[in-house]
Amino acid sequence: MITVENVSKSFTLHNQGAAEIPVMHDASLSVAPGECVALVGASGAGKSTLMRMIYGNYLTQSGKIMVGDLDIVSAAPRELIHLRRTTLGYVSQFLRVVPRVSTLDVVAEPLMVTGSNRDLAMERAKALLLRLNIPQRLWRLSPTTFSGGEQQRVNIARGFAYPYPALLLDEPTASLDPTNRATVLEMIAEAKARGAAIIGIFHDHAARDKICDREFDVTAFTPDKLS
């Protein structure tokens, strides 16, 4: 479902003496439907960078990244927009939403943009918020004022609202209490069971061992380590 072939990436900081910083060299990775792969490596090794390249958030200089039938590296913006709506989900560590929009609407949005009926989308959003223990009295409020852990859970609810065939998870269990952590792991297991290809970053080792089928060490492709 997700295939990364020989990708490389460097950042050029034009306003800091045109410093060129290579961050990834010749990385290849393949994830099948129903499989969960953990990206591992020390902080700064390029785990998030690789994940952002797969999402099309960072440009890739060379190589190929296939998600389904689309090559992210050469795709037009409009193809990427469509892919992100229907195929490739991403749960980031940060919640970025329009202020004033209610939590229910934030969670239901991925369903609304894919043409779901409003009532069904709301039902699904409520079920997810209930499952992730977001108190019902908060549902009508904007999540921008919530605590870190609550925001994290709203983000997860949003990321799991639509059944994406491919899913990227950036530390989904960070800052969660044991009960909610177990729920999130259960949700990831369910996504695997329905055939989603998942790539995740987990600093929580126990979670990683429990849910991931294998590990992919990005350190091997960090340019500094090569030289």
């Binding site: 050029t12 958030n57 960072y58 440009l59």
Partner: peptide, 19 residues
């Protein structure tokens, strides 16, 4: 420069966009 909004803002390529 042009592209997906989050890509241009998070990984700007041109010196002026970076600034």
């Amino acid at each position: 420069e042009s592209g997906l909004t989050d890509q241009v803002l998070d990984d700007p390529q041109h010196a002026y966009t970076q600034l």
